[in-house]
Nucleic acid binder design. Structure first.
Lengths: 137, 137
DNA sequence: GGTATTTTAGGTTGCGGACCAAAGATTCGG
DNA sequence: CCGAATCTTTGGTCCGCAACCTAAAATACC
């Protein structure tokens, strides 16, 4: 079960945008694409979804760009995944078979725990300040 | 992020086989397919993977069939998912982009928690005894 | 030898993920 | 008002994979 590249891109780009929060600067597609190594043509769609989902605001025209709609502390990993991927651990079966309902019930419990876990991470924890690169490099 | 039908099938079928554990009866493909509403032609592949993964044993020929390789208490949800789906929440990016590593690190933490959660469910909890149908019907 | 089973090795079909492309819509500077 | 810089929207492509089906071969029992 792999998580999509799309949600990875979304997290990276949002982490990048978190650094702009508080300033009145706006982030641009081309710039975000370059810094986070995301194909610009694909990023267009992602930003569009993030906007329709209410996570970011946009302004068009010259001096246009994107900004977080809320403080980084109020955007959780759950918000991102839910918006981009839909329900996590979504189960398809309508409880068919003799053990169908039982298995579904268990997966629902697991999903609950996973959602709680995802809600505990907010964007401010994504925004790595430049200092932690020192540890890795 | 939806979990595959395949892993759902595997859980259901294993839950069914758990009921045979302790007896010396073997489960058959056709019968499992019928009881758990799984396409028999597909189930062939699934049982093959479960066997190669060491979760079940098989015997062929007349009076052949399948049985759990270990007690139901020693087969966890994690074992099943890991075998069928591979790593859960598998991340693809090699940490590209400015926030790549940071995002990966967070997902790794989430995955750790999810794995622990999955390890806490074992097959005996899947095997619904007939009594709990009374509550649902 | 005949029958009931698993084993193995293919094939098919449709859908979705990961992109690319380009014509509009808006805003601003001059 | 013109033109440049940006977002917006819409459509398309390509490839891999999930979820099946098919059938011949191997094994085991009677």
């Amino acid at each position: 079960m792999k998580l999509s590249v799309k949600v990875d891109y979304a997290c990276r780009v949002l982490a990048q945008m978190a650094k702009y929060y508080g300033t009145d600067e706006l982030a641009h597609i081309e710039q975000l694409a370059a810094v986070e190594a995301v194909p610009a043509n694909y990023l267009v769609q992602i930003l569009s979804e993030l906007r329709n989902g209410g996570l970011i605001n946009s302004r068009r025209g010259k001096q246009g760009g994107y900004a977080l709609a809320r403080p980084p502390t109020e955007i959780t990993l759950y918000d991102i995944v839910k918006l981009i991927e839909g329900d996590l651990l979504e189960l398809n079966g309508t409880g068919e078979g003799h053990s169908g309902r039982r298995v579904n019930a268990i997966w629902r419990e697991v999903r609950g725990a996973l959602e709680a876990q995802c809600r505990s991470y907010s964007l401010d924890q994504f925004a790595a300040k430049s200092d932690d690169e020192m540890y890795y490099i």
